[in-house]
C-alpha cells in the first residue's frame, strides 16, 4: 500500500511540474559541472524551438548567475536537525504563464540568519533603482568590491536585475533558530 502511495506521489509531482510549467527542477549540490550541464541543456532546448537570440542570452546569463549564487553562497552550516546545507539548493527553470511565453528561474538556499539583514537590504536597494541607478551600483561594486574566497564578486543580483529589467521577487522562510531559507524568483519576459 505504501508503495502505491509513493508511486502516486511521483505522478502528482509530475503533474505539478506540468501544471506550473516547470521544465527543470533540481535539488542538491550545485557544482560547476552541474552549472555547465544545465546551461547547455537549456541552450539546446531553446535552440530546438528556435528561441530568439536575445532571449537565449538572457536565460543563459540569469541561469549562470543564479547557479553561481547557489554554489558560492549556500551556507556551509548544518541545521539543527543535521541537514548539511553546504553548496546545496533548489533550482527551477520554468515558463511564465503569460501570453508572450517568457521564462522564470527560481532558486532556494539556506542562509545564516545573521546574513539575512544585509541580503534583504541589497535586494531592496536593487529593487528601488532604475536602469541608470543599477548601472552605477554595478560599477561601484566592481570598483570597490573584492572577490571572496569562493570567487563571488557581489555583482550577481545586480546583474540579474539589469539584464532582465525586472524587480527581484524574494522571500525568507525560517528553517530554525539560526538559518533561513532564501527564495528568489527571476522573471525573464519578452518585451
Amino acid at each position: 500500500m505504501e508503495n502505491v502511495d509513493y508511486m502516486k506521489l511521483v505522478y502528482e509531482f509530475h503533474n505539478e511540474m506540468l501544471a506550473n510549467k516547470f521544465t527543470l527542477v533540481y535539488e542538491g549540490e550545485i557544482t560547476h559541472q552541474i552549472t555547465k550541464a544545465f546551461t547547455s541543456l537549456a541552450e539546446n532546448k531553446m535552440d530546438s524551438y528556435s528561441e530568439d537570440a536575445s532571449m537565449k542570452k538572457k536565460v543563459f546569463h540569469v541561469m549562470v548567475e543564479c547557479l553561481q549564487n547557489l554554489s558560492k553562497h549556500a551556507e556551509e552550516t548544518v541545521a539543527e536537525d543535521g541537514t548539511n546545507f553546504a553548496g546545496n539548493g533548489i533550482f527551477i527553470v520554468g515558463r511564465l504563464d503569460d501570453e508572450n511565453q517568457g521564462y522564470q528561474i527560481l532558486t532556494g538556499n539556506a542562509v545564516e540568519k545573521t546574513k539575512v539583514v544585509e541580503l534583504k537590504a541589497l535586494l531592496e536597494k536593487i529593487n528601488q533603482l532604475d536602469k541608470d541607478g543599477l548601472k552605477e551600483l554595478f560599477k561601484k561594486q566592481m570598483r570597490e568590491g573584492s572577490l571572496s574566497e569562493k570567487g563571488g564578486a557581489g555583482l550577481g543580483l545586480i546583474d540579474i536585475a539589469r539584464k532582465t529589467g525586472e524587480k527581484l521577487e524574494y522571500n525568507f522562510i525560517d528553517i530554525d533558530d539560526n538559518n533561513s531559507f532564501f527564495l528568489l524568483r527571476t522573471k525573464i519576459s519578452r518585451k
Binding site: 549562470v64 548567475e65 553561481q68 566592481m142 570598483r143 572577490l147 570567487g151 564578486a153 555583482l155 546583474d159
Partner: peptide, 12 residues
C-alpha cells in the same frame, strides 16, 4: 562573447 560577473571583476 560572454563573461559572468565574477570574470567582470577580474577583467577590471
Amino acid at each position: 562573447e560572454y563573461f559572468n560577473t565574477a570574470s567582470s571583476k577580474i577583467l577590471l
